[in-house]
């Protein structure tokens, strides 16, 4: 009888293989098994390449860059609001905030490869990963940790922004553009099951805006309260737009193939319109709310030009993020249009 690897070693190797490839990679390694040493060496040579391949397949460089900006901007906004310039300029704040941001990005890449591509799960894993270096730093270099309230608020904001980027772009950039005719019922089913989840994810981002607005509204400074009121109005607008732009309605899966294609095309068209107008109904108001969240400070201290200088890094990053998002939206719209054209 052909020898098989010991269960404990196989379980250890299985832990490192992304679930999407686990079954066949473990089977292939088992088929090549001679002894534990050879098995482990074979696994050590194979698994890194399998992981890299999976990361390449589940990640998009442009999207990751936008997510990195979104995460860092979120932490900056939280630090600016909760701790102000002393933290950012006097206590290496920019560096300290970069640590959880980089860890979150690593988490997002790994979550895509190992866990799930659903925006909410992926964002939660990525943002959760950002807390890991904080725990380590808390033990070895407490002076480099980020204060817990900044960390929590920054993480909540990052979660929302990463979720939003993924809701709009992940599905478009992932996988092949062509959908064979036979796969359309499956695609329709996929769209159906994803619609409620996407609305929920966008709804969660509205709740975060409500939280930001509310927390600004209950403070004593007038300018901050004004900003809070505007953010709440903004949240209402985004919430209404998310509701208005929800799916076309349930698509009957037993419909004739021709009708199914038409309904699929209509759903893709709806998404294309939502994507082309995204600046008016989602990203624009969202970025506007973030700006209101941080800009109340310079407006409150309009006589102190230094405050405007201090906020420049945040404004520059926000502008770069907005520019990149614009370019990515154009690319995503082109890809979606290609998908619609292929249906013809």
């Amino acid at each position: 009888m052909k020898p098989t690897p010991p269960a404990s070693i196989e379980a250890l190797v299985a832990f490192f293989i992304p679930p999407a490839c686990r079954e066949h990679v473990l089977g292939d390694l088992c088929e090549r098994y001679q002894n534990p040493r050879q098995y482990l060496a074979d696994a050590a040579r194979t698994i890194p390449l399998v992981v890299v391949s999976r990361i390449r397949r589940t990640s998009n460089a442009q999207m990751l860059l936008m997510e990195a900006f979104a995460v860092y901007i979120s932490f900056l906004a939280a630090a600016w609001w909760l701790a102000g310039t002393p933290f950012l300029y006097g206590q290496s704040g920019f560096l300290r905030l970069a640590i959880p941001s980089v860890a979150s990005m690593v988490g997002l890449v790994m979550a895509g490869a190992y866990v799930d591509l659903r925006p909410m799960v992926r964002a939660a894993c990525g943002v959760g990963f950002g807390f890991l270096p904080e725990i380590v730093l808390w033990i070895v270099r407490p002076d480099l940790t980020v204060p817990s309230w900044i960390m929590m608020t920054g993480a909540a904001l990052s979660f929302t922004m990463v979720c939003a980027v993924a809701v709009f772009f992940l599905e478009i950039f992932a996988g092949r553009s062509a959908v064979p005719a036979g796969d359309i019922p499956g695609k329709v089913r996929e769209l159906q099951s994803g619609i409620r989840r996407k609305n929920l994810e966008l709804g969660a981002s509205v709740l975060i805006l409500v939280f930001l607005g509310w927390s600004s509204l209950i403070t004593h400074e007038l300018s901050r309260r004004v900003a809070g009121g505007l953010i709440l109005a903004d949240a209402l607008y985004v919430g209404y737009q998310v509701y208005k732009r929800r799916a076309l309605g349930a698509i009957p899966l037993d419909a004739a193939p021709g009708l199914l294609v038409e309904l699929y095309r209509a759903e893709l068209q709806r998404r294309l319109v939502a994507l082309r107008e995204i600046w008016w109904w989602y990203i624009g108001p969202f970025v506007g709310a973030l700006l209101m969240y941080v800009l109340w400070v310079p407006f409150a201290y309009i006589d102190k030009p230094q405050v405007w200088v201090n906020i420049l890094p945040f404004l520059t990053l926000s502008w770069l993020w907005g520019f990149g998002m614009g370019k990515m939206t154009e690319r995503a719209a082109r890809k979606l249009q290609e998908k619609i054209d292929e249906l013809n």
């Binding site: 490839c21 292939d28 194979t46 890194p48 890299v52 391949s53 397949r57």
Partner: peptide, 12 residues
Amino acid sequence: VSLGAVYVTLDR
């Protein structure tokens, strides 16, 4: 030729 290199190419 390693098994990993073959997987990467097959995936691509």
